[in-house]
Nucleic acid binder design. Structure first.
Lengths: 188, 188
DNA sequence: TGGTACATGTAACATGTTACATGATTAG
DNA sequence: CTAATCATGTAACATGTTACATGTACCA
């Protein structure tokens, strides 16, 4: 009877459409900027969800713009579906961390190889943290985050990346090697 | 030509099979215990991967045991495939955190409702942290973790959950409410 | 005028989830 | 004897990824 509730990806698109009509492309950019740190979606997925939601009436296509851009606007049904979704208690997060699999099976690796892998991953986290902190600094300089909600989600990213770096830095010599020796190099 | 390399889920099963033949059921239990904190797999997925790997010769079925148990053992091809997988530099982790979506769209929620949702999630993290710390304490009492690799993956869980709790505890009043007021209750 | 970034979409496939059917063994 | 748990599996579906085809507009 009642169509099944939108999934988190579709619901997020509905959320963004509260700010006005947007095209699939716009939504991909917006999602990357606003929720990219803890939710991901590919362009093809966005176009598929849009087509599906247009089918079920949660959104409606508007006139094509330049470059064949096709904006969608949210309908009343869409607002209702979003409202229903957002007030549920959300499921627990899922973390899928291949590096931890590799470490868990570390006994099957040459020690230098594992150290090189870990070093590379650490660098990614350091870079992400720097990006997040730059964002926070920019907001601070501009007199505060746009909303307390945005500040909170960014704050999670910062807490997470800091914890990750501390964890990397506490790994034992069996995993990271004995200092700067650099056995087994980083070539993938 | 060369069959595509196993995915992380299949490769993990191969990893466990290095310790001797196991059935699908065994593997589900083992995976839950050993990698459940950062990788998940459902029973049906395990049986599907086993069937596929048996097809391609990475594993081989043995005689049925009691209760129709069907153990699989890893083949030489399977060992080679695993070795190839484990030495690659693993992809970045994916985190999908619906709570952060809800918070990001927090302006669409009654304040008390958001606070109740956040409170529930915090409790889950506190419980997980307690479980991890109990595990670490048990290992410490037994004279140390089974391997430094297991200690490291557990350590990640502990760092992560601690960071999460600190983040929860630093959330502003706009999100968690003003203390013990408890507007909007926890009923789902 | 030619390359790059913009923009939409389809198709095929891989992966993950849910619901269900079936039967064996054990514990009370 | 019966309920719970163990154990295997299929089917259907939802979700996510990758590769590709197509064309537009801007800018050097």
């Amino acid at each position: 009877m009642t169509p099944r509730p939108p999934n988190a990806t579709a619901a997020s698109l509905l959320g963004f459409l509260h700010d006005g009509p947007m095209t699939g492309w716009d939504l991909v950019q917006t999602a990357e900027a606003r929720i990219g740190g803890f939710w991901s979606l590919s362009p093809s997925q966005v176009y598929r969800e849009l087509a599906a939601m247009a089918q079920t009436g949660l959104i409606a296509a508007e006139e094509r713009g330049p470059r064949e851009r096709r904006p969608y606007r949210i309908t009343e049904e869409g607002r209702a579906a979003f409202a229903g979704w957002v007030e549920r208690v959300p499921e627990a997060e899922t973390i899928r961390f291949p590096l931890l699999l590799t470490i868990g099976f570390g006994r099957h690796l040459a020690p230098g190889r594992l150290a090189a892998i870990v070093r590379r991953h650490r660098a990614v986290h350091a870079e992400r943290l720097a990006g997040y902190e730059a964002q926070r600094a920019a907001w601070d300089a501009a007199g505060g985050a746009p909303t307390p909600y945005a500040a909170a989600t960014l704050g999670f990213g910062i807490s997470y990346e800091r914890a990750a770096l501390e964890w990397f830095d506490g790994l034992p010599a069996e995993i990271v090697g004995d200092g700067g020796r650099r056995t087994g190099d980083g070539a993938s």
